[in-house]
Amino acid sequence: MLKHLHTFTGHQNPVYALTKSAKEGIFFTAGNDKGVVEWSLSKMAFVMVKMPVQSSVYYLHNFEDRLFVAERSGAFSVYDFLAQEITYRINAHPKPIFGMQTIGYKNELLTSSEDGSVAIWSLSDFKELYRLEISTDTVRCIAVSPNEKEIAFGCKDGSIHVYHSEDYSLKQILKEHTMGITSLAYHPNGDYLISGSRDAQLKIWNLTDYTMTNNISAHLFGIYDIVFHPTLPFFATASQDKSIKLWDANNFKLYKIASIDKMGIGHSHSVNKLCWSHDGSKLISTGDDKKVMIWDLVI
């Protein structure tokens, strides 16, 4: 169901961050290089280095004509696509930023850090509104529910902290993983929350009472990303074990393993991030091997 289509080269170092543009057919990557790179899916070509960065980029997030760039330094930058320039650079945390998400109805940006906190910023002027001290260690990832009513934070200590978005009050703490949480995603219909960890397990959480309803030994090593298809009942996972796996989002059946071992082509090192194209026809992957790979979804 996943067929290799193209490999982009050009990055000189591991690639940690990936997001698609609001403009169809355009996506961005970044990592240990000194810039954020723009690529064209329609032309299968490098477009340009969109902006320089001062330290390694661990996360990219796109929202309403702006690209948010989270750095190892603890700062984030805001690139305005309309102005075609960097409009803000905020020294947000004393340690690296690993996660970013937006709450649209509140016009707020969230950043999570190795310092154990999550900071909430106004999207109007990027003033800090709140700071949540969530953990004594890294808050690695953030997921926002489809209705934006709740937010899940994945922590290095293996716990998942679920908060109400309206007032940032704590709703639930989930503790079933034996190692740090490295990926989180809500089902697009709000059916469940899924978590991936360094323990190589996927856990499925019922959003009514937050019981764990399923546990899947999904990979050999840490699961670094989980992405749901925009229209079809699939999700894909990326792992430190160098593989990408495609799953049924309803019964969790494994459909396809995309790896060198299984297909003769794939990433030679850890797969760090995944992203579906706008129409869902292609899956984009990035990794420690400095490559950006494009996969066709063949039904």
Rank of each mutant, 00 (worst) to 15 (best):
K34T: 08
D289V: 12
H267F: 05
L232R: 12
K262E: 13
K171E: 11
I194R: 12
A17Q: 14
F126Y: 15
G264V: 07
S169C: 04
H219D: 04
G154T: 10
T29P: 00
Y210I: 05
N214C: 08
K23E: 14
L2T: 10
I103F: 00
V37A: 02
I284K: 06
S77A: 03
L60M: 05
Y210R: 08
E128A: 06
D115I: 03
I86S: 10
Y168V: 07
V162I: 15
D279L: 04
D137A: 04
S56L: 12
Y192I: 10
I260E: 15
L2Y: 11
E114I: 08
H269E: 09
K253C: 08
D288P: 06
G158Q: 08
L232S: 09
E128P: 06
A70L: 02
I204C: 12
M51R: 05
V57R: 01
M100W: 11
V144L: 15
M293W: 10
K245S: 03
I151F: 07
F46W: 04
S117M: 04
M48D: 05
A70F: 09
C155W: 06
A45G: 03
F98W: 13
T213H: 05
A17G: 11
M212C: 15
G222M: 02
K3Q: 13
D209C: 07
M263Y: 00
V15T: 04
G264K: 08
Y58K: 06
L202H: 07
E64R: 13
I299D: 09
S56A: 14
K291M: 05
P233F: 08
A249Y: 04
M263C: 02
V118K: 11
I90Q: 01
W121G: 07
Y224N: 15
G190D: 08
D225F: 07
L2M: 15
K262M: 03
T178P: 00
F234N: 01
T9C: 04
L220H: 09
T231S: 14
Y59G: 03
N62Y: 05
T178M: 00
S135Y: 08
I299Y: 05
Y224H: 12
F8H: 09
K50W: 07
